[in-house]
Amino acid sequence: MSATDRRWRAKGFVMIDGGYRFGISEFTTQPWSFEDDVTRYARLGVDTIEVVEAKLDDHRFAEQMESIGPAGLDISGVQPKVRTFFASRMTPDPKGVDERVAALRGSIERLGRFAPGVPFITNTGAHPRGDMAEAMRIVGDRLGELSKVAADNGVLLALEPLNPTSVNVESAIWTIDQALEVIDRAGSDRVGLCLDYWNIWQNPGVTAQIARAGAKIFTVQASDWRTPRSFADRIVPGAGDIPLAELIRATRATGYELPYVVEIFSEDVPDSLYDRDLEAVIIDCKRGFASAWEESLTGRAFDPART
């Protein structure tokens, strides 16, 4: 038995044909503090944390970032405070592209030394006139400029296409192929793709698009879909309509071996996951993703009784 298999058995899952690293984005546990996230993720057997910069204390961020490794976690990605090139509903300020690029540069320079080799996650934002073509050109060019900053700080940039529900609200792109067009325009191997299954699962020919992305996939995010009742209505992996096993199988076929990170937003709905016991939510996420992973390998769902 490999060390990976032994580690996953110890965490309560039987992993076959190799394992995977399981991560949680701090967006998933929005009500917790950064310190709660680090302590509880580690205790619950999570492997990696996707850092949300907005949760860091401006006066203690170095100490906070340095606490992640000793707790037993790796960093899978960083969500900067300002992560879009145009204004968006989630991050409306500052307004101008130059100011937003400067903010993103500042995040990379501030946090990059604590997260070597890690992707900083970005998306386009919403063009103020809905000019998607211009947004793609500008974002590609600006990503190319920022790739030099990323290289200087030893990190990566990962562009995320969002779901069509976010078009002209949070994003100008909604397909993997559109993201790849922007990434190609950036012209740097420091710029790749953030593949969020919730956002792209309805893309036509999605598995072929994943195959085209190949080694440009820098990070993968997972959750599940029900018809949204707000801008933030994601659910636990395995509890909705997304064919996760199919998407995982397509992702694995590209050679992807980096973490799979659960990213859930759950606000302005009567049964918000943020109002539940979040430790139980994480456990449910682990089990739901494990089931999809095993189905991706064997065609049968994960059975907790076999652990």
Rank of each mutant, 00 (worst) to 15 (best):
A42C: 07
A42I: 05
R43M: 15
L44W: 10
L44M: 12
L44Q: 14
L44D: 05
D47E: 01
T48M: 04
I49Y: 02
I49N: 03
V51P: 00
V51D: 04
V51W: 06
V52K: 02
V52A: 06
E53F: 08
E53D: 13
E53G: 08
E53I: 06
A54K: 12
K55Y: 00
H59Y: 03
F61I: 06
F61R: 01
F61V: 01
E63G: 15
I68H: 06
A71P: 00
A71F: 00
G72Q: 11
D74A: 14
D74L: 06
I75F: 03
I75G: 02
S76M: 01
S76Y: 04
P80N: 12
R83C: 14
R83Q: 14
T84W: 00
F85G: 00
F85Q: 00
F86G: 05
S88K: 15
S88G: 15
R89N: 12
T91Q: 15
P92K: 06
P92N: 14
D93K: 12
D93F: 07
P94R: 08
K95T: 09
K95C: 00
V97H: 00
R100T: 10
A102L: 06
A103N: 08
L104H: 11
L104G: 11
R105K: 15
R105N: 12
G106P: 13
S107C: 11
S107P: 11
S107H: 09
I108P: 09
E109I: 05
E109Y: 05
E109R: 09
R110N: 04
R110I: 13
G112E: 04
F114T: 14
A115R: 01
P116N: 02
P116C: 06
G117R: 10
G117I: 11
G117C: 13
G117Q: 10
V118E: 13
I121H: 02
T122A: 14
N123T: 09
T124V: 13
G125M: 07
A126L: 11
H127C: 13
H127L: 07
P128E: 14
P128L: 14
R129M: 12
G130F: 07
D131L: 08
E134I: 13
E134P: 07
A135S: 15
M136Q: 13
M136D: 03
M136E: 14
I138D: 04
V139K: 02
V139A: 13
G140Q: 06
G140A: 08
R142H: 12
G144I: 04
G144R: 04
E145Y: 01
L146S: 09
S147G: 04
K148R: 14
D152P: 05
D152I: 10
D152H: 05
D152C: 01
G154H: 01
V155L: 03
L157R: 11
A158G: 08
A158D: 07
L159D: 03
L159N: 04
L162Q: 09
L162C: 09
V167S: 01
N168G: 01
E170R: 07
